[in-house]
């Protein structure tokens, strides 16, 4: 209850601002219509009309909620109109990109920690890679992979998602693999431990807290990457494609419903990663 109260307060505040903004933005259209018809409307008459337009500039919360509900539960989940279906497509892409990003991030981190030249040669590129706007890069990746004969949409999507998600993993893992102090390293040396044993028994377990901390950021980045990968024209599946269709065909309700579906998906992913993190922490003896 103590935690729910501030959250509820903020939520109510957001809803109030949202409704106010919806009235303000959608009223323009109501007044325009009236003028064209040669009649006048008072604000009292206009406000109800701002709440139920077919193509509102800013749909009010209850309209978005209704559309979202319809999208999620209004039809079979296999239907092309179902947000569950599109959400699943995006989820699949996110997971592929996430997995790929983790593998790439961890492998690069291992190379960077092991070889000094890698540290000097790779790290700057990894940083530069993140300064290129992904929206500029995404169409190029898609074109390139279709050029290479990869007609399936999954592959470029996963690459774009991985491109965003490998970086937090890489940075955290480099830090984590380097976290053991001199004494811990010396201890292993007195056992005559080789490089492999040092990695497996010390560096890797010591890096786990850093790894799990990076996963939340990485999964969110992966979702963003997947949605961006679904945006370029040609895509018909996924929440990103729904958003684009909504905005291109002037169906703001579809766009907003897809947007909220993406937010719900993000929330679920973060929760799941958090649970995995806690389970791992418990196994590794972190004090409760």
């Amino acid at each position: 209850m103590n935690r729910a109260l501030p959250v509820l307060t903020v939520l109510l505040g957001i809803l109030a601002i949202w409704y106010a903004a919806a009235v303000w933005m959608n009223a323009t259209w109501v007044f325009d219509q009236a003028e064209r018809a040669g009649t006048t409307v008072t604000w009292a008459e206009a406000i109800p009309q701002t709440m139920a337009q077919e193509r509102p500039l800013l749909p009010p919360p209850h309209q978005v909620g209704a559309e979202l509900w319809k999208g999620l539960f209004g039809q079979a989940v296999t239907s092309k109109r179902s947000l569950v279906y599109h959400g699943y497509v995006t989820f699949k892409g996110t997971m592929m990109g996430f997995g790929l990003g983790i593998v790439a991030g961890v492998l690069l981190a291992m190379a960077i920690v092991r070889f000094r030249v890698m540290d000097m040669g790779l790290m700057p590129w990894a940083i530069i890679s993140q300064t290129i706007p992904i929206v500029a890069l995404a169409p190029m990746i898609i074109t390139l992979s279709s050029q290479l004969g990869l007609t399936a949409r999954d592959v470029p999507k996963a690459i774009i998602a991985a491109y965003l998600s490998f970086f937090p993993v890489l940075v955290s893992m480099v830090k984590g693999l380097r976290s053991p102090d001199q004494m811990q390293l010396d201890l292993l040396k007195t056992y005559g431990a080789g490089e492999m044993a040092t990695f497996l028994k010390l560096r890797l377990p010591a890096s786990m807290p850093y790894f799990f901390a990076s996963l939340k950021v990485a999964v969110a980045a992966s979702l963003v990457g997947t949605i961006v990968g679904e945006l370029p024209t040609g895509a018909i599946e996924g929440l990103g494609a729904r958003m684009l269709i909504g905005s291109q065909f002037g169906e703001p309700l579809i766009m907003w419903a897809a947007l909220f579906a993406a937010a719900i998906l993000a929330g679920l992913l973060i929760v799941v990663v958090g649970v995995v993190e806690r389970l791992a922490a418990r196994r590794m003896g972190v004090r409760a």
């Binding site: 004494m183 811990q184 010396d186 377990p205 010591a206 590794m284 972190v286």
Partner: peptide, 10 residues
């Protein structure tokens, strides 16, 4: 060593 240096995850 001066500090016990036990691995906290073991």
């Amino acid at each position: 060593f001066q500090a016990a240096g036990l691995y906290p995850w073991r």
